[in-house]
């Protein structure tokens, strides 16, 4: 929370004195300002706990995480604990941990221990660095808390060929191995997959996922499908947003703002607090240096990725958008 702002890949190289001075906002100076969403209540507190550092370099990553992407750095257990303490008074309902790959953070298990003393915790993981000893410790942490510990495991296909083309060679087998270990000790991980197929294939893909997971001993799978976010690496893999894909005041006129994550969440990073986990590469989405500043600041729906949330709702929450938990 105290580090200087990092250099953002492909973005500005120094923090602007004012958010309105970012290049993109200057460019759009002629159009009316984007609609804003005030924070209704801070229900979800997200932590960019491993920054943008990941052992994989997925071709669809909306913030282009990789082993070399140090734009955002790891958060220490102490840094997270300070924010957790602050969150207690704010009445936060859920904690989410993301990255990068959270389990590349050497403090991750300690961070989870601290979080689970206070409330429910969810970790978004690629599950490629979850050896048995980590899985065993996660089970201990889960059993030792009255709150739920959710593991959200990203797998982007029902075959190694399909998944590894996006997530990298060998990632399919390693993730499935971890799912098997998690199921073995009683977890019901939420398998998250980005929709890279035509809608008409969804039922077949879900069926294939259930079969695949049953084959590794996971018989009650909870499946979550995410829509693609056309930013970061995904913009290169498929396409960016079309100019019309933008949230306007008219679109928000009768829209229930509580469907959007930014109406009830903030993302804490080692370099400040953002309105949501999707817009990490967007300095205009930085809501403040401290949690209190970020709580007071409304979210501006000026990024085009906001359009995806407008269409699908708070896609980052555990239960939202499209899930198949049956």
């Amino acid at each position: 929370m105290t580090k200087a702002l990092p250099t953002l890949v492909g973005e500005v190289t120094a923090p602007p004195a004012d958010a309105s001075e970012t290049p993109r906002r200057r460019m759009e100076g002629a159009v009316s300002p984007a609609p804003t969403v005030p924070l209704r209540a801070l229900d979800q507190l997200w932590f960019q706990v491993s920054g943008t550092v990941c052992n994989l370099r997925c071709r669809h990553c909306f913030i282009s995480c990789s082993p070399e992407n140090h734009s955002f750095w790891f958060m220490s257990r102490k840094e997270v604990a300070e924010v957790l303490a602050e969150s207690v008074e704010m009445g936060v309902k859920e904690y989410y941990f993301t990255g990068g790959e959270p389990f590349m953070n050497r403090d991750m298990l300690g961070i989870l221990e601290d979080a689970l003393a206070l409330g429910p915790a969810t970790v978004l993981t690629n599950a490629t660095v979850l050896p048995q000893r980590t899985v065993d410790r996660l089970r201990e942490l889960s059993e030792g808390s009255p709150y739920t510990l959710e593991l959200r495991v990203s797998i982007d296909g029902v075959t190694a060929e399909m998944n590894d083309a996006i997530r990298g060679e060998g990632s399919f087998e390693r993730a499935l191995g971890a799912v098997s270990r998690l199921a073995e000790v009683g977890f019901l991980p939420i398998i998250t997959t980005m929709r890279t197929w035509d809608d008409s294939a969804t039922d077949a893909i879900l069926g294939a996922f259930r079969e695949l997971l049953a084959g590794v001993g996971y018989h009650r799978p909870r499946l979550k499908i995410l829509p693609p976010l056309h930013i970061g690496a995904e913009a290169e893999r498929t396409r960016g947003y079309a100019e019309v894909e933008r949230v306007t005041h008219e679109m928000m006129a009768e829209y229930p703002a509580e469907l959007l994550l930014c109406s009830g969440a903030r993302l804490v990073t080692a370099s400040g607090v953002w309105v949501c986990p999707i817009l990490l590469d967007d300095l205009a989405a930085k809501a403040g240096d401290t949690l209190q500043e970020a709580v007071d600041a409304p979210a501006r729906l000026e990024a085009q990725a906001c359009y995806t949330c407008w269409v699908n709702g708070a896609i980052c929450s555990n239960v939202s958008g499209f899930t198949d938990f049956s």
Binding site: S87, V88, E89, M90, G91, V92, K93, E94, L118, G119, P120, P146, Y147, T148
Partner: peptide, 14 residues
């Protein structure tokens, strides 16, 4: 409001 997803501090705020 499930038991495993409802922090005590959240209830106190309510």
């Amino acid at each position: 409001l499930w038991e495993s997803t409802t922090p005590t501090h959240f209830l106190d705020k309510l």
